[in-house]
Design a protein around this nucleic acid. Structure first.
Lengths: 348, 348
DNA sequence: ACGAGTCATTGACACGTGTCACTCACCCGA
DNA sequence: TCGGGTGAGTGACACGTGTCAATGACTCGT
């Protein structure tokens, strides 16, 4: 793709020669009133009455100067902010998860929170927590990767954070934990394969770094399901390349597997194609199941069976955050939720 | 997927009964020194010498109280922040673009910037700019969707923003614009199809909202390429569902197209499958080209031809931001760049 | 013994805002 | 005429930090 950089024409470049940014004091001066009055007018404070002519003068002065309040000063004075900190994951998460994050951001935004992404590079959990605490967010929503230890939670709480919410594979101490039941994904997949008569089940484990958080519990879930009926589970390391898939497929006869859970629709599609190219019949010789129910999975032949994951909606999580901040939340332990379930197509 | 909410055990719940968060004054009091000394010690100010015993007392006091500086107060005093504002797009962008955004965030983080996502809901450009300006960011990197008008740029600059960078389809006035040459994507695709003897070219236009920003210029690029040699371009509205693709495929004979550019690998795969199911020979009767060079595109048969887009690296853009902030940047107009080019596989 | 010079530390201000308590002018009723 | 009430606005403080100029205490050379 062609790209080009364009810099501002020199004419407009320094039309603003280091002019200081206007403050409410400047507005007050221009309007001929006190700074307090400016604050009252611009914030529409109802407890104080200001005459209409004065209001108008203030508004016009603010307009003319292009005055914009300073959020930091405001929240410093107020003693609290409406910032939600979102420790960012540096991993190539799937489309489902990234869509969830995007939705979450927008839902929070709609509730008038400011979302701050914050990647913590190579810091241990407590140092990361200290870095986060500097921003004095009102809530921290950790979406995995960065572990939130109890000590880290304590640091955050002590800095005024109202709610620490961790959405991950297991509950963290002292936080409102939203547990995404990853093992269940592997379990239902394995159960489905077993129900169709399979006994030696491969489970793809992506080699891409950062995905163990998801892949390990899924593998474990498959193991428990298999263990219950004496079936076998074999972990299959796989990189997201055609070569890696080809090599794995070449070893297929010696592995003696009659089914495989592909971790993902993407990895499953990759592997299924490699198997077919290697002459393995799907689903005759080996059944294949993915996860995420991507539309693209329906385009291959046979159509890919998959585990449909009903991810919690971004809006729901945002509401939980809001509730936790206000203290009104805590929809207690229950909150029985959507299942992940198998959608059988043709590959299994 | 099963999910459950867990709230903190009541024992640890209010172990901190509204205890105020410690400030540097508290540290000073505990260490028996002045607040200034605390500031000097904790910031390792080199211009002032503090005795080693005192340093130790201060550090221990800070440690004991769990003191964490207040970023807002700090940047208020300093008069500037290191916050980069990233107006968030509420659209389901492709994996390529979202990966680019993720990289950008991490690269900025590595340069010690704080990345703030900010969705502006239904505001006109100037109101949005005012909302952004309240945060007093040092730079704003707009990635499309939200239009940055010259007036908006003025508002931002006036609030102290050092650099406004817009990465999009066309340069915006007064900003450092990074132009992603979307038309070129459509052009090279069309040129390739024409070179293989096709004359009536369909161009998929996704119906999903928010993608016009990409699809319109690509369509336009295809038009110019076709116009140069008297070929025809037909826009093809398509939703990302099997039904929509099926309907479009059913109308295929009457459209009389011998080639189609699918906007995307994903849309192209969807359409190609529908065409095949409708009995259209690919590439015999109709050639298909996608874009993004997704790995999954190589799994279908015939393998999908595609336009490989060498997106600017997140790290490069971050460096540009940093340079613009420091004023050292402006690698002037040139910066000749990577091309988007066709990778021919089997579908064309 | 005394001025000069270094060392360690501190008091005070500024950053930009929100808000409480207070002042001032004015009007009304007795 | 005077006390009290009301409407319109203001002075001053606090939020938590960084940093400059100033203050003592102490040492040293003559």
């Amino acid at each position: 793709m062609s790209q080009s950089i364009e810099q501002p024409a020199d004419g407009t470049r320094d039309r603003t020669p280091a002019r200081a940014v206007p403050t409410s004091a400047d507005v007050a001066r221009l309007a001929g009133v006190s700074r307090a009055t400016v604050s009252y007018v611009l914030n529409n404070t109802s407890a104080v009455r200001i005459s209409e002519p004065t209001r108008k003068r203030v508004r016009e002065a603010a307009q003319e100067l292009g005055y914009v309040p300073h959020a930091a000063a405001r929240s410093l004075r107020a003693g609290h902010s409406r910032m939600v900190l979102l420790p960012a994951a540096h991993v190539p998460v799937g489309p489902l998860y990234s869509r969830f994050l995007n939705d979450l951001q927008w839902a929070l935004r709609r509730l008038d929170y400011t979302v701050v992404q914050y990647g913590s590079i190579g810091l241990d959990p407590e140092d990361a927590a200290r870095a986060w605490a500097e921003l004095r967010p009102v809530a921290v929503v950790s979406t995995g990767e960065v572990e939130v230890t109890p000590a880290a939670v304590d640091i955050l709480k002590r800095s005024g954070v109202k709610a620490v919410i961790s959405v991950g594979t297991r509950p963290s101490g002292g936080t409102h934990s939203l547990v995404l039941d990853q093992p269940r994904v592997g379990r239902v997949a394995a159960e489905h394969l077993i129900a169709t008569g399979r006994r030696r089940i491969g489970v793809v484990v992506p080699e891409e770094p950062g995905l163990e958080m998801f892949s390990a519990p899924r593998l474990e879930g498959a193991r428990t399901a298999a263990g219950a009926v004496g079936a076998t589970v074999v972990p299959l390391p796989l990189a997201y390349t055609e070569e890696s898939a080809g090599e794995l497929a070449a070893r297929w006869p010696e592995l003696g597997l009659d089914a495989v859970f592909g971790y993902n629709d993407e990895y499953a599609m990759l592997l299924m194609r490699a198997l077919q190219d290697a002459g393995v019949d799907v689903p005759g010789a080996t059944a294949v199941v993915g996860a995420d129910d991507l539309l693209l999975g329906r385009l291959l032949r046979p159509r890919l069976s998959t585990v449909r994951i009903d991810m919690v909606l971004g809006g729901e999580l945002a509401a939980l955050v809001d509730g936790a901040v206000n203290g009104t939340a805590d929809p207690v332990g229950g909150r029985s939720l959507l299942d992940s379930r198998v959608i059988r197509r043709e590959s299994s």
